[in-house]
Simulated scan of single mutants.
Amino acid sequence: MQIDTIGETGSTNADLAARLLAGETLAEGYWLVADRQTAGRGRQGRQWLDTPGNFMGSTVVTLRADDPPAMQLSMVAALALLETVMQRLADPSRVRLKWPNDVLLDGAKFSGILLERVKDHAVIGIGVNLVAAPPVEGRETRALSALGPAPQRDAFARDLAAAFASEVARWRSHSGDDLRTRWLAAAHPLGTPLSVHDERGLAVSGQFAGLADDGALILRLDDGSQRVIHAGDVTEEKA
């Protein structure tokens, strides 16, 4: 495991992508962590705002021919982050997962996970509000410091890197059913009413019916049919 830190950059994901495209070999277990990001990105091109003391870092997974579906790495990253955060909470029930890769604190957004494919690699970027919670349009945000002393960034980085390495090894050695079962145990229950805006911006409502083999969302519609959604924004509706 190797963690390099830099004072400021545009985006740690973009930095690792550029290095891979230039032919550099980045071993699994390598992380690039920034004190500041000036062009951090979230899903669907959204800006990810930073604050000094928060965690902003990226790592790489080399995709092998016999690996499970790469899309499942979204669940891998979320489970690693969940494990790292739960170690720091007196009440672990205050943190849970929301599809596709949100980890929520008391129902509020306090982290972001971004996966990008670069040749035969997946670059995974993670941002976590340790100290402060920059605003996100249309979303309630929170920081871990709201529940007690803010975690020290470098210690958090080491624990997250170790948890991620463990989850990647488990992803490769266990079945997809194991990954889905563990993700579902920490997420919104089956049958939860959801509204989803897909990658085209179209809204569809239904009930959460589980995950497909690749980690896609299965939504049960009012007519009893099911729709598989691979990307989108999810909102839980009041029953």
Results as ranks from 00 to 15, higher is better:
L97P: 05
K98T: 10
W99G: 04
P100W: 04
P100S: 09
P100E: 00
P100I: 08
N101V: 09
N101I: 11
D102L: 13
V103D: 07
L104F: 13
G107F: 13
A108G: 07
K109E: 14
K109S: 13
K109R: 14
S111Y: 07
G112K: 05
I113V: 15
L115F: 09
L115K: 08
E116V: 09
E116I: 08
V118A: 07
D120R: 07
H121A: 11
H121P: 10
H121E: 04
A122R: 06
V123T: 09
I124A: 09
G125S: 10
G125A: 11
N129T: 06
N129W: 11
L130I: 06
V131E: 14
V131Q: 15
V131Y: 05
A133F: 06
P134Q: 05
E137G: 02
R139C: 02
T141V: 15
R142D: 01
A143N: 03
A143Y: 06
L144S: 10
S145A: 15
S145M: 00
A146Q: 13
A146E: 15
L147Y: 12
L147T: 12
L147W: 11
L147R: 11
P149C: 00
P151G: 13
P151T: 13
D154Y: 01
D154I: 03
A155R: 13
A157P: 07
A157N: 09
A157V: 08
A161E: 03
A161Y: 07
A161D: 02
A161K: 09
F164A: 10
F164I: 07
F164K: 06
A165R: 12
A165P: 00
S166W: 01
E167Q: 15
E167A: 15
E167R: 15
E167T: 07
V168F: 06
A169S: 12
A169P: 00
R170Q: 11
R172L: 07
S173R: 14
S175Q: 03
S175T: 15
G176R: 03
L179I: 10
L179F: 02
L179H: 02
R180P: 00
R180H: 00
T181M: 02
W183R: 06
L184D: 02
A185W: 00
A185T: 00
A185G: 03
A185H: 01
A186Q: 14
A186K: 05
A187D: 04
A187S: 14
H188Y: 10
H188L: 15
L190Y: 00
L190Q: 03
G191V: 05
L194D: 03
S195F: 00
S195K: 09
H197S: 10
D198V: 00
D198A: 02
E199K: 12
R200C: 04
R200H: 12
L202R: 12
L202C: 02
V204S: 13
V204T: 14
S205M: 08
G206S: 08
Q207K: 11
F208S: 08
F208T: 08
